[in-house]
């Protein structure tokens, strides 16, 4: 790790201001991804602003009948919350499918959204990577690409977003609540929160410098059957090759989002509309425009089959 100075912030506004005051500063909450990357010097902040004291660790009902999840709510606490288990099962399931119990005990809601790709070329500091070192090139293109994106990728980057939680939040139309260093608050729909790589894969979210996530809000419960199905190389404690978050109603209508296939959770309105026609129709729309490599072409039939399994489970 590179040396860094450290401070504990007491309010969200103070944290955002501190981040802006120190160029190259990072917020630290759970630290489970940031410290991993700092040890490898992929991240090398000169200053850390510890936000654990901000009292953003509560889950509260909203006036609209939804839930406001504090940025610092740990993944374990969120998955175990009675309201989340009852009304947002897809979210509880996605959280429980991610990482290990030890990591979920520390990892936070905001940090989960901000975790960085697990592309092995991003992690290998001996290799060019446009995300790690803008303009250096993409080693994954032409490399081993079994884990990589099949949707929304660019010539600069074919990395995937590793979060399970974010995929469930995308299916639920969550919104991300933030505060900027000047104290101004902002609400970012989850659909707009993560960016596609384009020419700037190092810019991963819509957050501005110093902007701090304070909570994630869920709309009122959708009802229906909630399913999160994750396909991975091990039975536990592995990132998704493909995952499906689904909320399916009795009449067959519903909504689906995919994980493991793109730089952000993937959802398509026309696929949701096609859901009553079955998995094949919905998968065709979700995967429209997919571009594969020899290594990751398996993801297309895997998405369709996972969707078949999800819809069968919803009917049973």
């Amino acid at each position: 790790m590179k040396p860094f100075t450290y401070e504990r912030a007491r309010t969200p506004a103070e944290a955002a201001a501190a981040a802006l005051r120190h160029p190259g500063a990072k917020f630290i909450a759970g630290g489970t991804n940031l410290l991993d990357l700092m040890k490898l010097q992929i991240e090398a902040p000169a200053h850390l602003v510890d936000v654990n004291g901000l009292a953003l660790d509560r889950i509260e009902a909203t006036p609209e009948g939804g839930l406001r999840i504090g940025a610092l709510v740990r993944n374990t606490a969120l998955a175990a919350d009675e309201r989340v288990r009852r009304d947002y099962g897809v979210l509880a399931r996605a959280l429980l499918a991610g990482a290990s119990a030890q990591l979920r005990n520390k990892a936070t809601t905001a940090g989960n959204l901000l975790q960085r790709t697990r592309c092995p070329y991003f992690y290998d500091t001996n290799q060019p990577c446009n995300k790690r070192q803008p303009g250096s090139g993409c080693s994954a293109l032409g490399g081993i690409t079994r884990q990589h994106a099949v949707l929304g990728a660019s010539q600069a980057c074919i990395a995937t977003h590793p979060s399970d939680m974010a995929v469930a939040m995308r299916s639920l139309d969550a919104v991300v609540d933030t505060v900027k260093p000047d104290g101004q608050k902002r609400v970012i729909p989850i659909a707009d929160f993560h960016r596609l790589p384009g020419d700037t894969p190092h810019i991963e979210t819509a957050l501005e410098p110093g902007e701090l996530i304070t909570s994630v809000s869920l709309p009122k419960p959708l009802g229906g059957t909630h399913i999160y199905r994750k396909v991975r190389d091990r039975a536990s404690y592995a990132f998704a090759l493909v995952s499906v978050a689904a909320v399916v109603q009795r009449d067959g209508s519903g909504r689906v989002a995919l994980g493991g296939v793109a730089h952000k959770p993937w959802r398509d309105d026309s696929a949701d509309a096609a859901l009553p026609q079955g998995a094949k129709a919905a998968a065709a729309r979700l995967l429209a425009g997919a571009r594969t490599t020899e290594d990751n072409a398996f993801k297309l039939p895997l998405v369709e089959r996972t969707l078949v399994a999800v819809l069968a489970q919803a009917r049973s």
Partner: peptide, 22 residues
């Protein structure tokens, strides 16, 4: 790097990876 669990300790009664926290 938080991948093996050998460093697991209890902090305020909760198990965490002590390697991934300052």
């Amino acid at each position: 790097h938080g991948q093996c669990g050998a460093c697991t300790v209890l902090v305020d009664g909760v198990r965490i990876n002590s390697c991934l926290t300052l």
